[in-house]
Amino acid sequence: MAEAFIVGAVRTPVGTKKGALAAVHPADLGAHVLKEVVERTGVDPAAVEDVIMGCVSQAGPQALDLARTAWLSAGLPESVPGVTIDRQCGSSQQALHFAAQGVMSGTQDLVLASGVENMGMVPMGANVQFAVDNGLSLYGEGWGQRYGDQEISQFRGAQLMCEKWGFKREQLEEFALESHQRAARAIEAGHFDDQVAPLAGVERDEGVRPDTTLEKMAGLKPLRESWELTAAVASQISVGASAVLIASERAVEQHGLTPLARVVQLSLVGDDPVYMLTAPIPATRRALAKAGLSIDDIDVTEINEAFAPVPLSWIQELGADPERVNPNGGAIALGHPLGATGTVLMTKLVNELHRTGGRYGLQTMCEGGGQANVTIIERV
């Protein structure tokens, strides 16, 4: 099987839902990172064979195949096609999987994996509003026969995880505080400077709260009475875009590219859709087994902090070193622009491996429907 290499990775700052990036059209958000990764790598844009873009709420300005619109909005060659995909929160990580698989299969040499989400302009769930407005089921008869009429939501799933693993509110808040502190330290130390392409006057991630405290978190109301969850222990509604260029060995030589990482393993797993957020655990076990690695071999992990119980349960079940997990903070502090987060995390992961000299990195995230992607890379 052919090798696939990451040769470029870039992201916008992650903006808040009411920040400066919220006024930027999603196509222009995507255009910014696509153009940036082409310029940074020096690759001939006409040599790119496909642009695969993750986007979850494909409605309004995020409809009509955003990948194609973003590429053309960047002034890049009309000869390059684009496709927009939805694997919920893992959409752009799945875009990276498809891109790498195209290269590893030998059918493609240069593919751009990317993601965009402007949750300030297109609210989460905007693409399902038609069903809601017209009293239509989102799931259908077969689903109802299998799972009944119980509530299916990420919020309930996170609470069910708290109950299963015995997490209490104070533990969740301690984890959230650490996420903000790690992110604040990373920003001040300049760890993100090389990977971020400023846009609309925004140069740094906007959601980080370096002055938050456990006392402030304790004053928030739970999402529901008797629940452990509050807004402080959940990922933020955000705006952002990201792009990763995947190349074959032949393309690396032909275009004079510099490999940053080699793709080692691509895995997918489904789990209980009611719990919804637990699949990173079995997905990681599968990926490690297929790669012939142990969790101790992984120098850096990026796991999406959709809710604090997700990384906490993953760390507990895998026996991972917490210091190696989200070392520069996660989505609780930095935000979660749904379709963009997958390649945001990969951009962070590649850069952290190079900054620290680590060998192996692992990325995973929970996804709607009870799914998870896992990507293992090796620094080059």
Rank of each mutant, 00 (worst) to 15 (best):
D149S: 14
G142C: 12
G292V: 06
E253C: 10
S153M: 12
A95V: 07
V51D: 09
Q363P: 07
L112H: 03
L220T: 11
Q181V: 08
R286Y: 04
D28K: 10
A247T: 02
D205G: 03
N326Q: 08
E3A: 15
D109T: 03
S248L: 05
V10H: 00
T258D: 13
G135P: 00
V43W: 04
F5D: 02
V132P: 02
G370Q: 05
V83W: 12
A31H: 01
E352F: 07
E174G: 13
M1E: 03
R224F: 15
L160G: 05
R185P: 00
R87H: 14
A291Y: 00
I281P: 10
R68G: 06
A189G: 05
K18F: 14
M365P: 06
V80L: 07
K290S: 13
T343H: 04
E188W: 05
Q108T: 09
A231N: 12
A184V: 09
D44L: 12
A261F: 03
L21G: 01
G357M: 06
V37N: 04
A289I: 06
A63V: 07
A27P: 01
K35W: 03
A231T: 14
L172I: 05
L345W: 07
V48D: 02
Q62R: 03
Q171Y: 06
E302L: 01
L288D: 01
G330A: 10
A261H: 02
D65R: 09
S57V: 01
V274R: 13
K290I: 07
G219Q: 14
E317W: 04
S91V: 06
L349T: 03
G19V: 00
G54P: 13
L312I: 08
H97D: 13
D109C: 02
V196G: 11
L172Q: 10
T284W: 11
A218N: 09
V116L: 13
M119S: 01
K221W: 10
Q62S: 01
Q195M: 13
V269E: 13
L362F: 00
L64M: 10
D86E: 09
W143K: 05
V208H: 04
Q150A: 14
C162T: 10
R68Q: 11
S267F: 08
A308M: 01
L34K: 00
E305N: 06
L349R: 09
L312Q: 11
A320I: 06
V80D: 02
R169G: 07
Q129T: 14
T16W: 01
V80H: 04
K168D: 10
I332H: 06
W143Y: 15
A176R: 08
L362G: 05
V116N: 00
Q371P: 04
L223F: 11
S153L: 12
Q62A: 07
K348R: 15
A183T: 05
Q58C: 04
F130G: 08
L172K: 05
N118A: 06
D149G: 14
I303V: 15
A283N: 07
L260A: 02
G125D: 02
V80R: 10
L353K: 00
Q93Y: 01
T230H: 09
S248A: 07
S92K: 01
V244C: 01
V43I: 15
L229F: 08
W227S: 09
Y139S: 07
M276Q: 12
M119K: 02
L345R: 11
N351I: 01
Q62K: 01
G106A: 08
H354M: 04
D193W: 03
V37R: 00
A287I: 10
P273L: 08
A2D: 12
S248N: 12
